[in-house]
Design a protein around this nucleic acid. Sequence first.
DNA 1: AAAATAATTAATCAAATGATTAAAATCATA
DNA 2: TATGATTTTAATCATTTGATTAATTATTTT
Lengths: 205, 205
Amino acid sequence: MGKAKNLEKEDLSTELKIKDAAAIVFQKKGFAATRTRDIAEEAGLNLALINYYYRSKKNLFDIIMAEKLSTFFRTFIPFILSEDQTPDEKIKRISKDYINLLLENPELPLFVLNAIHTNPEHFTKMIYGAEQIQHSPLVAQLKRLNPKAKFEQFFLNIMALCVFPFIMKPAISHLSDILSKDFENLMKERIEMIPKWMDAMIKVK
Amino acid sequence: MGKAKNLEKEDLSTELKIKDAAAIVFQKKGFAATRTRDIAEEAGLNLALINYYYRSKKNLFDIIMAEKLSTFFRTFIPFILSEDQTPDEKIKRISKDYINLLLENPELPLFVLNAIHTNPEHFTKMIYGAEQIQHSPLVAQLKRLNPKAKFEQFFLNIMALCVFPFIMKPAISHLSDILSKDFENLMKERIEMIPKWMDAMIKVK
DNA sequence: AAAATAATTAATCAAATGATTAAAATCATA
DNA sequence: TATGATTTTAATCATTTGATTAATTATTTT
């Protein structure tokens, strides 16, 4: 529709500028509070280009959200499915990879979880292969470590320990004067501690 | 300003209806996405009454947010300050009181943390006595239990374990078919488990 | 270089929305 | 009950905002 038909790579420049700018503004203010004019300004481009390249604000948002959603959840998948790592190794890698990912994208969790909250039905597809998790190698490994441990609680716990600080970040950062460490150091420390904590938790009861 | 001068209790009826309706809609959709017309409809009242009683949408939001903010954080204060409970008892009570509070107000965490994220400067006052936490009885107790344990991490951990599931709730609830328990039972189980987990974590290292 | 296609711009539109107003209805008080 | 104050209502305003359009500039193709 008024969009370049063939060449899809040379002229990605402005198209990508818009998407990147939109991602920044959407993550900062949320969908409803961002005006297309904010995005245009952030991108340093004319307002009409947003509709020229992406048809509508909502469509642009959906594209960005799909990417962010994937980024937010995909870290876990290889570790859930892998057979040739111990649970210890998996937990270490998840903590490290995930916290480092979130240090690069600190606004990602609140952004994604907000979208799910605002529009739960729309995200059914996201949870595509969730049924298989119960029969995954990781769950089997955990059952072997502690038959009483519930894998739902395990997943909630490791996500909580990794993700929650980023959701609290604005409150924490504001406290950084009185805290001994700044936010980034706090999270670096957690990369080391979370595996130990998870190990202790799994053995409980 | 056009508002009743003297009598401030008899006619709270519609005033409160508006506030309650607004709290529901604001928590569901966020500030920017709620229209004053949504609030009026939720309350079953005429649109103009919102401005008559609360002057502006923003003012109404600020009033609600101040209350929700207090609700979200106040649970911890007595346990931080109390001298005559063991850390074990405190953690048990926090888990129980806080999770039960959030089961009554499941949208509270995302609502409050969003507001802080959108407008961090505005919430400086919230963190009024945070400096004193470092010298609080609870921190002293924790130091005695494990000198290596960091109280910042302890606070993050207990909040994470209690609060994070509610932020994930829309995703979890959607999974309830394939989960063994529904969300409420999952959280009831956590009331029992979190003290044990926290105890194991505190002893780490 | 000329023609055709694509990208960009400034101006504008139409719908949505927070807020106001003036009149009507309700309530309180003497 | 009559008078005055308060509350409620329907209609309207002014601004914001997502989107479109027509004209202009840039790029590609022949």
